[in-house]
C-alpha cells in the first residue's frame, strides 16, 4: 500500500518536474549580409555617346532635348543582341573614367505572359549573365537587376532561385547589383523584403526603387528606408527619371504615358538622403511606356520627351520654354 503511494508520488512528481526540451532550432538560418562596397562614392556616372534620344536630336537638330541627352542614364540590356553593345560601352566608360549603370532585363517569363518574353529557360538566362560578365571584363559596373521581376504577380521561388544565381555570379565578378524592388504603391515592404531575401539581396549591394514609376522621391525614400531596415540595411537607388510631378492622378492605366509627368531630380552619386546610394535615371526619359496615351510605340517618342521637359520643376525655365516652343 505505502509502496504504491510512494511510487505514485515519485512518478507523478518526476513527470511534472520534467522540463520541456527545446530542440526546435529555427528552420531557416539567419541571413548573413555581405559588407557594402559603396560603388557610387567619388565616381561620376557614365554618359552614353549614343542613344535613341541622341540620334533623334542629331537628326532633327533639336537642342531643346539637351536636358535629357546630356544627363547620364542607365543602359538597358533586354536580349542576347543587346549584349553586342557592351564592348563599346566598356571602352567608352574607360575613357570617361565613369561608372556605367546597366539594367539587366531578360529574366525568364519577364512580362508574366506565359514565357513569351525574356530568356526561354533559366539555364539560358544564366548563360546570358555569364556572357555579360565576360564582356564587361575588368570594368566594374552597376547592374540594376530585372525591373518588376520581384514585385510581379508571376514571382515564384524558381524565379527567386534564378535571380539568386545571377546576383551571386555578378557580385562574385565584382559588379554591384541592385535588385528592383518595385515602388511604394505596389507591394508592402514586408512582402518585398521576403522576396528580395529569397532572390539573394544579401550578396547584392542593395535594391532599386521606383524604376519607370513616378512616385515622389520622398515617398520612394520613406518606403526604401523601411525596406532597407528589413533587408540588413542594404543601400538603395531611386529612379528619379520621371517623378518630377509625383504620381499621375487616377488608377488603372494612368501609369502609361500620362499627361501629368515631368523629369525628376538629376542623377547624383551624393544624395542627401539617408540610406540612398544614388539617385539615377534608370528609365530613359522620352521612351514610350507602350501603346497608350496617344503613342503607338515602345521606342523613343519626342512627344513624351517634350512633355517631360516642359512640365519638370527641375529644369530651368528657359530650357522648359525651349522645349515648349520647338
Amino acid at each position: 500500500m505505502r509502496v504504491l503511494l510512494i511510487m505514485g508520488l515519485v512518478a507523478v512528481l518526476a513527470a511534472c518536474g520534467q522540463t520541456p526540451r527545446v530542440e526546435l532550432r529555427p528552420s531557416e538560418p539567419a541571413v548573413s549580409y555581405a559588407p557594402l562596397r559603396h560603388p557610387f562614392r567619388d565616381r561620376q556616372l557614365y554618359l552614353a555617346p549614343d542613344s535613341p534620344a541622341l540620334r533623334w536630336q542629331n537628326a532633327n537638330g533639336a537642342s531643346w532635348l539637351d536636358p535629357i541627352t546630356r544627363t547620364p542614364q542607365a543602359v538597358w540590356l533586354n536580349s542576347p543582341q543587346d549584349l553586342d553593345k557592351v564592348p563599346a560601352l566598356v571602352s567608352e566608360a574607360g575613357q570617361q573614367d565613369a561608372l556605367p549603370v546597366l539594367v539587366a532585363y531578360y529574366v525568364p517569363n519577364r512580362g508574366c505572359s506565359d514565357f513569351r518574353d525574356g530568356a526561354p529557360t533559366p539555364a539560358e538566362y544564366v548563360q546570358w549573365v555569364d556572357r555579360l560578365i565576360t564582356l564587361l571584363g575588368a570594368t566594374k559596373a552597376v547592374v540594376v537587376m530585372e525591373p518588376d521581376a520581384i514585385p510581379a504577380d508571376c514571382f515564384t521561388t524558381e524565379r527567386a532561385e534564378v535571380l539568386k544565381a545571377a546576383v551571386g555570379k555578378l557580385s562574385e565578378a565584382g559588379h554591384f547589383v541592385y535588385l528592383d524592388a518595385g515602388h511604394s504603391r505596389w507591394r508592402s515592404t514586408g512582402e518585398t523584403a521576403e522576396r528580395l531575401i529569397a532572390a539573394g539581396v544579401n550578396v547584392a549591394e542593395g535594391f532599386a526603387v521606383n524604376i519607370s514609376n513616378r512616385q515622389s522621391t520622398e515617398d520612394a525614400h520613406k518606403w526604401g528606408r523601411e525596406l532597407a531596415d528589413l533587408t540588413g540595411d542594404r543601400e538603395f537607388v531611386i529612379d528619379t527619371s520621371r517623378n518630377g510631378l509625383g504620381p499621375p492622378p487616377g488608377d488603372g492605366d494612368s501609369w502609361c504615358n500620362p499627361e501629368q509627368q515631368g523629369l525628376g531630380e538629376p542623377p547624383t552619386t551624393k544624395p542627401a538622403l539617408e540610406g540612398v546610394a544614388a539617385l539615377l535615371w534608370i528609365k530613359p526619359p522620352g521612351e514610350s511606356d507602350g501603346i497608350c496615351g496617344g503613342e503607338d510605340t515602345y521606342l523613343f517618342s519626342p512627344r513624351q520627351a517634350r512633355n517631360l521637359i516642359m512640365r519638370s520643376p527641375h529644369v530651368p525655365p528657359e530650357e522648359r520654354e525651349a522645349a515648349a516652343t520647338h
Binding site: 526546435l24 528552420s27 531557416e28 508592402s188 514586408g190 512582402e191 521576403e194 528589413l230 533587408t231
Partner: peptide, 13 residues
C-alpha cells in the same frame, strides 16, 4: 504590422 516586417526565425510549419 506584418506587412512591414520580415521573418527573423521560423519554428514548425
Amino acid at each position: 504590422a506584418r506587412k512591414h516586417a520580415v521573418a527573423a526565425a521560423r519554428f514548425g510549419s
